[in-house]
Design a protein around this nucleic acid. Sequence first.
DNA 1: CAAAAAATGTAGCTTCGACTACATTTGGAA
DNA 2: TTCCAAATGTAGTCGAAGCTACATTTTTTG
Lengths: 158, 158
Amino acid sequence: MPPDTPRSTSTRRPAAAPRRQAAGPDAATIHHGIRRDHSEETAQDYVEAIAALIQQSNEARAVDLARKLGVSHVTVVRRVARLVEQGYVTSEPYRAIFLTDKGRALAEECTVRHETVLAFLLAVGVPAAAAERDAEGIEHHVSPETLEAMNGFLKRNS
Amino acid sequence: MPPDTPRSTSTRRPAAAPRRQAAGPDAATIHHGIRRDHSEETAQDYVEAIAALIQQSNEARAVDLARKLGVSHVTVVRRVARLVEQGYVTSEPYRAIFLTDKGRALAEECTVRHETVLAFLLAVGVPAAAAERDAEGIEHHVSPETLEAMNGFLKRNS
DNA sequence: CAAAAAATGTAGCTTCGACTACATTTGGAA
DNA sequence: TTCCAAATGTAGTCGAAGCTACATTTTTTG
């Protein structure tokens, strides 16, 4: 095994200060948070989609959800089971899916945020098609502070 | 099983037009794209982190990566193995991790995008702490069009 | 009303990220 | 030079998201 790779610089810690050496302030914390959110993102997507379906057909069927989200009905069914556990939706065997109060609240919140992000992107000059696409992804990573900044911007430029 | 749930409205398709009924234009496609990206997000995070480590220590060790990303070294090792397969990095047993040309290119691209998003958020009035956090999540969902809009905004307001 | 179609449910497989626990290698110190 | 701590590697588990295939129930339709 040729020891060619330079292993020197600042790699081995002096055995005394084992943690927190050269890296940034708390980059790990940020990534941690992102990962935690990941699970909630899906929940939000589902709840939002369910709310949309209910609004347009009075009920949300698993098939429609599957189509809307682009996954198989099996995936939907399993995810919905978890949403039931988390208290976002109710679902009886072979019946449609409905939102609980908690679910409705989340959907409402998500929808508002989605609208804001979309309006903001459009206001900044993003073409409609791209704005719609990006809003889907961005909305889950917008903190209250950023949301407020977006709203401020929209208010100023209206 | 009481058949109480209202199943009527617009649910059953007329057997003739089995697909694409009431739903939006192609919402599924959007979600599909988002999901596909998910895997690339991680790759980008890793490549970006590796580039940062190399810049500050001339090499990226698995431990440092693990610390930076807030995961165990095992997770890093496994992910890095896939990055090797994808041609983003090189890695010899018990040695540090280095970027290939492809990896360097991706890192460069990600870094630029990250900087742009961050600068943009700040320019729009998002507090620094929130901007840093949100940029991490948002950068992966910014299309070229949106990136260009952000750059345009920054140019106009400088 | 009965048959067929559509929707839902269930079983089981795959991939991926994340972890703990334990083994092995490396490199710096004693 | 030997020993030890830190870094890496390996094995095996878990949960979640995806899927296909097949079973069951509901709803439409002939």
